[in-house]
Design a protein around this nucleic acid. Sequence first.
RNA 1: UGGGGCGUAGCCAAGCGGUUAAGGCACCAGGUUUUGAUCCUGGCAUGCGGAGGUUCGAAUCCUCCCGCCCCAGCCA
Length: 562
Amino acid sequence: MEATKKNIEKPLDFIRQIVTEDLRTGKHATPVTRFPPEPNGFLHIGHAKSICLNFGIAAEFNGRCHLRFDDTNPSKEESAYVKSIQEDVTWLGFDWGENLFYASDYFDKLYDFAVELIKKEKAFICSLNAEEMRKYRGTLTEPGKDSPYRDRPIQESLELFQGMKEGRFEEGSHVLRAKIDMTSPNLTLRDPIIYRIMNVHHHRTGDKWCIYPMYDFTHCLSDALESVTHSLCTLEFADHRPIYDWVLDVLETPVHPQQIEFARLNLSYTVMSKRKLMQLVHENLVTGWDDPRMLTISGLRRRGYTPASIREFCKEIGIGKRDSWIDMGVLENAARNDLNVIAPRVMGVLDPLKVVITNYPEDTVEDIEAKNHPQNPDMGSRTLPFSREIYIERSDFLENAPKKFFRLDIGREVRLRYAYFITCVSVVKDETSGEVLELHCTYDPETYGGNAPDGRKVKGTIHWVSAAQAVNCEIRLYDRLFLVENPDADKDVNFKDHLNPNSLSSLTECMVEPSLANAEPGTSVQFERQGYFCVDSKDSKPDSLVFNRTVGLRDSWAKRKK
RNA sequence: UGGGGCGUAGCCAAGCGGUUAAGGCACCAGGUUUUGAUCCUGGCAUGCGGAGGUUCGAAUCCUCCCGCCCCAGCCA
C-alpha cells in the first residue's frame, strides 16, 4: 500500500541512529539512559526535551531510563525540588520504575575511587587557594602552569585527603585535583578539581560528609555504576567528554558509557535558565514556580497544557546539534492539536453584553441541546437553558460594521449557537459615555436548534449564555512573559527589563454556562470561538471559578483586521 | 590569536555521491463547516554560509574562507 503523507514516519534523530546501530552490532543488548537533574529548581520545558529523549529511547528500544538526582552540591539543593521533579516526570507520563538514584548514593564509592586515583598518581591534593589556582590555570590562549603541589608524594596526598574527609581543614584550604595536563588547549583538562571541602548539610547524607565530589568526577562514575549505555547531555558538556572518558579509563570501570551531546532547547520570548526563573519567583515578578506564564512543567500544567501536548512538542522539534530558537507558536500549536481532540466544547462569554430578546416570553426557560464535541458524537451532549435575557460577547456586536463582519449590527441576523436566529433591533447606550449597555433583538421561533425551515442562511454563529443561569467567574488571559524574542541577547540590559507588563489580564465579569458550575480543578474545555481553558488548580473554588486560558483558537478574522 | 561545536526556507528539521531537496510551524490561495475553529486541497529553497576543486553526477567528498555558539566556578 502506498504510504500517505500522514503515514510518513519521523526519521530517527542522530542519537537514535547511534542507539539503533549499537543494538544492531550487538554492542549493547538494550539501551540504558538516565535523566540526571540537579535538585536545585523546578523542571522546565527544556528539561522536558531531555526527559522525552531519555525516557523515549528507553521505551522505544525496550531499555530502561533511570531518574538520578545529581546532588553533589548541597549548598544549592533541597529535597523540596526532589519531590517536584518526581511529580513532573511522572505527570509527563514517564516511569523510572525501580531505578531512582542519587549521586549521593555513591559518595562512599566515589571516595574510594578518588583514593584509587591518588594511588595511581593520577590525582593529588592541591593547596593553592582559589585565586592562585585561577592564575595557574592560564587562559584560553596561554597554557597553564603545574601546581607546586602537583608532585606531592602519594602518601602525603592520601593523608591530606583523609584529613579533608575528617573535617580537619578549612573550606578552600585544599582540593583534590586530577593530574591530567596543564597545557591542554581544553581548559577542562587542566588538572580539574574533583573534590572540594564544603561544610554544608546535605539533604540526604546529612552531616556525614564535609567534602563533596565535583560533576566531572561524579557523573561519569555514576553512569558507569548504573551501567548506563548512552549518557545524553547538552552541548556545553562536549568539552568535558575527554574527562568523562579519562576518569573511566584510568579507573578501569566495568562499563564505559558513551556521552553524546545534543542542543538544548531555546524558546522565543522566554528565559530558560533555572537561575533566571528562580529570580522571577523570588522577586515576585511571577506568582511562583507554577505561575501559568512560566515555562516550567508545573506552570504549563497549571496553564492547561497536557502531557501529550508537551511530548508531541518535543517530538516535533527534534534532536540536533545546532543552537536553535523554537517559536512559541510551535508549543501553542501542540497544545491546540491535543486539546482540539479531547476538550469538550462549552460556551463562555469573556466580556458580556446583555441581549434582551423582546419577542421571547418572560419567565420561560427552554432546554437547548448542545453537542459536547461536534466532531466526536461519542462525547455526547448536554442541555443548556435559554431565556429572554442572555449574554453575548461584546466583540460580537459592532455598529456600522463592514460587510465582512459576520456578527451582529442593527438589522443583522445571526445564529445563537444551537438555539435560534436573532436579529438586532436596537441598541441601548449610556447617554453620556456612549457605551453600549444592551441590545434589543428579536428571535425567530421557527429556527429552534439553529436552522431555518425556509432555508435561509446566516453567515455568523455566535456563542451565548442565559443570563439568569450563567455562572459568574474569573478568567485569566496570558500573553508572553517577555516583549522580545531573546531577553538574554543584550548583555547590557537586564532580562527583567524586557518583562511584558501585560502578560496577565484577569477578567472577573465573565459568564459561563451552568454546566461548568462544578468543574473540577485541572479540567480542560474549549470555550467555543475563544480557545482552550483550564480550571485553575490553585485559586478556583466551587463558588468562585477561575479559568486559565491555555491558548486561544486560531483567529483568521483577527488576522484580517490587522 | 587556543580548543570544541554548528551553518539546508521567516522558525525548526530530514537528507549519509544519482530523489521533482521529506515533514512540521508560520504564511498565502481555495473547498467543507451551526466554532471566522477543526478538517480537506493546493502554493511556498533552479537552492543547501561563500569560493574553488574531485566526479559522468556534489547539500552530501576535498581545500580555503566567512559567520554563529560554548569553554578561563572549589556550579551542573
